[in-house]
């Protein structure tokens, strides 16, 4: 049964497009143009009350009825439970996956997101907000987090252990943009090795390529105001 994917090509969106590809699930993509404020449409609000994509509607939910799900981490956990894949084989392994998934949700995602904002978006606002303190803070915090990740990956092939999991699917979309976050990963060999390994997965490449052409669409003042609610 088809899953409706509410999506725009951003790191959070890729988490779910990659997961759907990895799990071989049938899905139909509904673009949510965040530059045009489509995430604020009332019908989308019913699916995602936080006005953020990605979101999904599984037409065949747990009781056979449709279920809407928002928040990328919750979607990943749901899809992994639904398919019984990429979520560890034992309770200990699931705890490891959950830990690193939450680490992404509470750490890498917010910090890298703010780094992107203050490095790339804020200086191009009208008037420009070229702010060194937040730029340096978020860049440094991302560096710290990637150091944590490198040390973890020195121990295991994948983030949560010996097997590829939804934690990897959550982290890779942000981590592979390390240049955009002005990071130096030459001192993080395990992180580099993991990036190469995950990047080579065909499902990751397909999920990353979903509507990729829309990612570089030029933004105008209106879209900035919508995106950043100014």
């Amino acid at each position: 049964m088809t899953i409706d994917l509410y999506f725009w090509p951003t790191p959070n969106g890729w988490k779910i497009s990659i997961a759907l590809e990895e799990m071989g699930l049938d899905y139909e993509t509904h673009l949510v143009n965040i530059s045009k404020g489509e995430q604020f449409a009332p019908e989308f609000l019913k699916i995602s009350p936080n006005n953020r994509m990605p979101a999904i509607v599984d037409r065949e939910g747990p009781d056979g009825k449709p279920i809407p799900i928002f928040e990328s981490g919750a979607i990943l956990q749901y899809l992994a439970r639904k398919t019984g894949r990429f979520y560890g084989a034992t309770e200990r392994e699931r705890i490891a996956v959950d830990q690193w998934l939450m680490w992404q949700m509470g750490g890498v995602g917010p910090m890298a997101g703010q780094a992107h904002h203050f490095i790339h978006y804020a200086p191009n606002l009208d008037p420009p907000q070229d702010l060194s303190y937040p730029r340096d803070r978020y860049r440094a915090e991302v560096r710290r987090l990637y150091g944590v990740l490198d040390r973890q990956l020195a121990e295991s092939a994948y983030v949560a252990g010996a097997e590829y999991s939804i934690a990897d699917m959550a982290i890779w979309p942000w981590a592979h943009l390390w240049k955009r976050q002005e990071q130096d990963i030459s001192d993080k060999p395990h992180f580099t090795r993991w990036l190469d390994t995950v990047s080579a997965r065909p499902a990751v490449q397909r999920g990353r390529a979903l509507f990729a052409e829309l990612r570089n669409a030029p933004q105008d003042k209106d879209s900035q105001a919508i995106l950043f609610r100014r």
Binding site: E155, A157, A162
Partner: peptide
């Protein structure tokens, strides 16, 4: 010590 890969 957990193995980095299954079967290691």
């Amino acid at each position: 010590i957990p193995a980095p890969r299954r079967g290691d």
